[in-house]
């Protein structure tokens, strides 16, 4: 079967991408697989200036998952473009830059800088961040703010596709999806982490210095499937499924509920070659299950 998927002007050899924050800047994984075999690379969230991130501890293991409060530590967009991007196989495999800012204008400036780089194929906008100019409410939890960020990025992104990454920490994710679509997004990716906590009954301390963190891993897959299913029914733009994907069968499940492609996230920590293994395993599973084209399988859930 032809594994190729196309969306928002991008063509991927296969539907397996890596999720931002779980794949470093790509270069960290070169010892574990040939990056050119992946459908696309989504690299660690970038801000205009480097960020130090949160105090330690930043991670805690939970049942079939993990909580993190890394705090978007990153080297900054310029350092990524000058020092990391040249090592990536961007001419063969789309490199998608994930971007993060605390104000709509800053999102626009960042989008303009990244979009003009030949090695950046598309932008993914992280709207799960506090809006400092509006009292810290998360952009991604208010349809009006999410739309404003989407417009700000879209206006400055030139011809580069813009994908907006949705948080599940909302009352109605379909509402958010529609607002972002109407604001001009070319695609959606979901879900980001679920807000969560872990505490120690003995020491009476939170397990994360930040107290609250984001839950990811196989534990959140049912929530992610539900969100992707609801969003796919609410919008017409392509949806990229994320959340707990750790096997080729998980990939098919997300495509079955309507996703065009997927991102492998926390499973990259289960073993660093996992995304590459899924690329290898997917064709055989499709053959075994009688899946012969993405167009007929996508969204074919008998519900």
């Amino acid at each position: 079967m032809d594994m190729t998927v196309s969306f928002a002007g991008l063509t991927l050899d296969n539907p397996i991408m890596t999720a931002s924050g779980t794949f470093g800047y790509g270069v960290e994984y070169m010892r574990f697989g040939d990056l050119e075999r992946l459908g696309a690379l989504v690299v660690k969230g970038l801000s205009l200036a480097p960020r130090r991130g949160n105090p330690m501890p930043r991670i805690a293991e939970t049942p079939a998952g993990m909580l993190n409060a890394i705090g978007l530590q990153n080297i900054g967009a310029r350092e990524f473009v000058e020092k990391r991007l040249p090592s990536l196989p961007w001419s063969r495999t789309p490199v998608i830059a994930n971007l993060y800012a605390c104000a709509a204008e800053e999102f626009g400036d960042l989008a303009a800088y990244l979009a003009e780089q030949p090695g950046v194929a598309a932008l993914e906008v992280n709207i799960s961040c506090p809006n400092v100019s509006e009292g810290g409410i998360l952009f991604g939890q208010d349809p009006r703010l999410a739309a404003r960020v989407t417009e700000a990025v879209k206006r400055r992104a030139g011809a580069k596709p813009v994908m907006v990454k949705l948080t599940p920490n909302v009352t109605d994710i379909a509402d958010m999806a529609r607002a972002v679509q109407d604001a001009g997004a070319d695609a959606l990716s979901l879900i980001n982490t679920l807000s969560g906590m872990a505490v120690d009954a003995r020491t009476r301390r939170p397990r994360l210095a930040n107290v609250i963190g984001g839950l990811s891993g196989p534990a959140i897959k049912p929530v992610a499937l539900r969100c992707v299913w609801q969003v796919c029914r609410a919008v017409s733009i392509p949806v990229i499924g994320i959340g707990g994907i750790a096997s080729a069968e998980d990939v098919l499940e997300f495509i079955l509920v309507g996703a065009t492609a997927v991102q492998v996230g926390t499973a990259n920590f289960i073993r660093p070659d996992l995304a590459f293994r899924l690329v290898d395993e997917l064709p055989a599973l499709c053959a075994a299950l009688g899946v012969d084209s993405w167009d007929t399988y996508r969204g074919s859930l008998k519900a």
Binding site: G21, T22, F23, G24, E28, Y29, R31, F32, K44, G53, M56, P57, R58, I59, A60, M66, N68, I70, Q73, N268, F269, P272
Partner: peptide, 13 residues
């Protein structure tokens, strides 16, 4: 405490 062991997750800084 580490998750990835390879410098990707930034959990062990």
């Amino acid at each position: 405490r580490m998750a990835c062991g390879i410098g990707a997750c930034l959990g062990c800084v």
